[in-house]
């Protein structure tokens, strides 16, 4: 992705608007996923995504030839989210509604469209997303950046403006909390199915 982003940024800065659209198509889904997880409200995330790319556009001269713009764009999204949260004087918007996972089109027999490969456990994924949204913002951001978006600890720390050590701790705590929450929700859904009660009466 970074080589593509560099190439597109190069063309965009040289005045090619189609390169900007391609850059948007390349980065916007992940950025929107990140912003959706952070705001927990899709409409707000959409708006912040537009603001992020508007800032990118207006500050495009800040780019350095040959440099990957992705961490910078993520950092702008992070800053835009923080500014919005501060403006509204609330870091967390709304409660998890589970409406930020796009619907997967299904065939008539109920299987997901294009599901030749093993279908992911959508219910469990939804539960994971809901559990993710219950995490404190910093832990949520750490898990989203390192697990969903595949950033390294160092990249995630640079995006969030913190130290790699702090990011590692946040990601670890977030992961532990997420596992705990998922285990609890699984047990609440079907305690008899639990496999780790190891012969408890």
């Amino acid at each position: 992705m970074s080589a593509d982003a560099i190439r597109l940024m190069e063309r965009y800065v040289d005045g090619d608007a189609t390169a900007f659209r391609a850059l948007y198509a390349l980065l916007a889904p992940k950025l929107l996923g990140y912003l959706s997880k952070m705001t927990r409200e899709r409409a707000v995330a959409d708006d912040l995504l537009q603001q992020t790319f508007l800032k990118v556009h207006r500050a495009r001269e800040a780019w350095v030839r040959g440099a990957d713009p992705t961490p910078w764009i993520y950092a702008i999204a992070h800053r835009t989210f923080l500014d919005e949260a501060r403006r509204k004087q609330r870091a967390v918007v709304g409660v998890a509604k589970g409406d930020d996972l796009p619907e997967v089109k299904a065939d008539l027999d109920g299987t997901a469209e294009g599901a030749a490969e093993p279908v992911p456990d959508l219910e469990r994924t939804r539960a994971a997303m809901a559990a993710l949204e219950s995490l404190p913002p910093q832990q949520r951001e750490a898990v989203v950046l390192t697990k969903l978006d595949g950033k390294s600890i160092a990249e995630a720390a640079a995006i969030a403006g913190t130290t790699p050590g702090a990011m590692k701790v946040r990601a670890h705590r977030g992961y532990v909390a997420l596992r705990k929450a998922l285990g609890a929700s699984d047990e609440a859904a079907g305690p008899s199915a639990s496999s780790d009660d190891g012969g408890k009466p």
Binding site: K30, P120, A128, L148, Y175
Partner: peptide, 23 residues
Amino acid sequence: MSAPRDYELDELLRDAPLPDPPP
């Protein structure tokens, strides 16, 4: 079911579909 192991959780999060961005 028990709390997912790390690799299971990795897979769950990785499988989360990305939203479609607006125009």
